[in-house]
């Protein structure tokens, strides 16, 4: 059975994931290097980010080989952060709209605090 406390995987498993992470990081750097803008930029950044995060969690942190009980206990709770994100998006839009409608535009003055 593959689910034992002492897992051994061939070293090539780690090396190939390592290589993949390198390639994905290069891609995300190239997004900035070639100044890709607009929706394509957000899409590519998020795509490479989630792919990298997935590889690290599933292979390097061995989540792939853990039982469902601990996978659920650790990976599901962070989804609550999405609710938090949604709430703060609403709040930030409100703050932003208030700024736009209430405050008179001012030129931002940079002060030196040395």
């Amino acid at each position: 059975m593959e689910k034992t406390v002492h897992q051994t995987h061939p070293i090539s498993t780690y090396l190939s994931i390592w290589l993949l992470l390198f390639v994905l990081s290069t891609f995300s750097y190239l997004v900035d290097f070639f100044q890709i803008e607009g929706n394509m930029r957000w899409f590519l950044i998020l795509l490479f980010m989630f792919l990298k995060a997935g590889l690290i969690i599933s292979v390097f942190m061995h989540m792939k080989w853990e039982r469902m009980a601990i996978r659920g206990a650790i990976l599901l709770p962070p989804l609550a952060l999405l609710v938090f994100v949604a709430l703060m998006v609403i709040e930030s839009n409100y703050v932003s709209d208030t700024h736009a409608s209430v405050f008179v535009p001012v030129t931002f003055v940079v002060e030196s605090h040395n």
């Binding site: 938090f84 930030s92 703050v95």
Partner: peptide, 19 residues
């Protein structure tokens, strides 16, 4: 995860609402 998540959400909030 929740600590860093909250930091990043705080960052999102100020970046979305700054004039």
């Amino acid at each position: 995860t929740f600590i860093f998540g909250s930091f990043l959400i705080g960052y999102m909030s100020v970046r979305m609402s700054t004039v």
